[in-house]
Structure formats: structure tokens, C-alpha cells
Amino acid sequence: MPTGILLLMPPFPIRTAAPALAVPPGRLGYDLDAETMLLHSIQSAEAFDVLLETGVLRADPTLADSPWPEAYEWMNRMMAERLPTSGDAALWLWVRIRRRHLVALCRRARGEVLLTCRIPRGRVLVSHFGEWHVALNSGLSVPQHPGESEDEYDKRNDREFDDFADRVDAAGARNSPLGDWPFELRTELERSWECILDRTLFPKTDH
């Protein structure tokens, strides 16, 4: 769930803790409709030092080395269109995560810093974690229709996916970077990704 900037606002408690103790026990109380959202991000010690020194943590595009530049470029465009923040990259945060998963992430990030933040809803672009991987794989995102059964959805998804793949093959774009795709196909693909940002289209268990 990207945002462009984190601002340090006092008071700002800091403590050192083992991964299992870094996250309070019990439910964390996420509310995706709240005016101020509770979010988490694991950052490097260097990034945390910058936050402490300047009071600001900005996304730095020069530190990005992604094998999926087209998907991140698309997300940056969505942020520019939908958020009041500015910048050339995103700060990624968990807008909702199970406590055990967050603890597991902390265990794999020893020496780094878990930031627990409260950020105004209007400065955060909420996205679906699972569907974001469809964009990373340059796939067509096909959301489930209201009232559509799993079987009906699976069949429709296969039809739409196969039809799109056939058109990509016919254009000779199968193994080409998205930037080299015909404009119409790339536009259709990227528009399908917008469901990643629409909570009304998230699976019910993920709302």
C-alpha cells in the first residue's frame, strides 16, 4: 500500500525488542475506512536514521532495482493521479496483516526497524497484495463479479485470459517488454490492473 512520504511527529516512542515482542499481542485493530490508518513498514537502519535526523522519510527511486519496472511505473502513475503526495517512488506499508505474519517478517529482518505509523487515509493508496502480483507478472487482472460463483468466475477468467493471450501472441508481443507492446494492448492490460486499487472488488475475506 504505497504512500509517498512519512513525517516524524512527536511523541515518537522507540524501543528495541525481539521479533515476537515487537508487535503487541492480540488484534491490531485495523480499520480501512478510518480517517487515520494504522500501517506498518520494515525499513533499514539507515532509513530510520534519516527519519530521526530529518523528521522525513521519502522514497528514493535510485535505491530501486526491480525486475518489474513497468508495474512499478504504473503504480507510480496511479499515485500521482490519486494522491496529494509527490515524488518518483513509493514507500510500501502493510495496511492490514495478521500478527503472526508481521512477526515472521520481523524475524527475517533482524537489524532493521519496524515502523508502526498512523497516516491520513487520503495520503495512502490501498492496493490488494495478491492481485498486485498479477501486475508484476504482466498478467490480465479479471475481478470476480458480484453474485458470480467460483466455478462461473474460473470459467470466465480462463476465457478472458486466453483471449487476451491470443491477441498478445498475434501481435508478436509475448516475450517483449510492456513498453514495446501495441498501445491498445498495453492500455487494456493496465486498465485491468485498476481493480487492484478498488476495495469493492477485493475478495470478501480481504475487505
Rank of each mutant, 00 (worst) to 15 (best):
E188W: 05
W92A: 00
V126T: 08
T54N: 01
G130R: 13
L7G: 11
P19M: 15
T3L: 07
R167V: 11
A90E: 12
W132L: 13
S44E: 05
A170G: 03
S192W: 04
D166N: 06
E190H: 03
I97Q: 08
A135W: 05
G179Q: 08
E46L: 02
R191A: 05
D60C: 13
A47S: 12
A89Y: 14
F129Q: 12
G179C: 08
C106W: 14
R123P: 07
P143K: 05
G111P: 13
D33R: 09
V124W: 00
Q144W: 15
G26E: 13
P203D: 02
L8D: 04
R98H: 07
W94N: 01
H207L: 05
P143L: 02
V95F: 01
H128C: 09
V50S: 10
R27L: 13
V126N: 05
H145C: 11
A18Y: 05
S141Y: 14
P203I: 00
Q144K: 13
I196E: 08
A104C: 05
R159F: 04
F48K: 02
L140E: 06
E81I: 07
S86K: 14
A173Q: 08
R156D: 07
A45L: 03
L57R: 01
N157Q: 12
V56T: 04
A20F: 14
P177E: 07
K155V: 11
R107A: 13
R107D: 14
E81R: 15
R108L: 02
G111F: 08
P19C: 15
G55K: 08
S141E: 04
P24C: 09
A135P: 09
D169Q: 12
W181P: 08
T36H: 09
P146E: 03
D169T: 10
W193G: 01
D158K: 13
G4E: 08
L201A: 11
L63M: 04
W94I: 02
T3I: 00
H207A: 03
V134F: 11
T85W: 01
G179E: 12
F161Y: 10
D162L: 10
N137S: 12
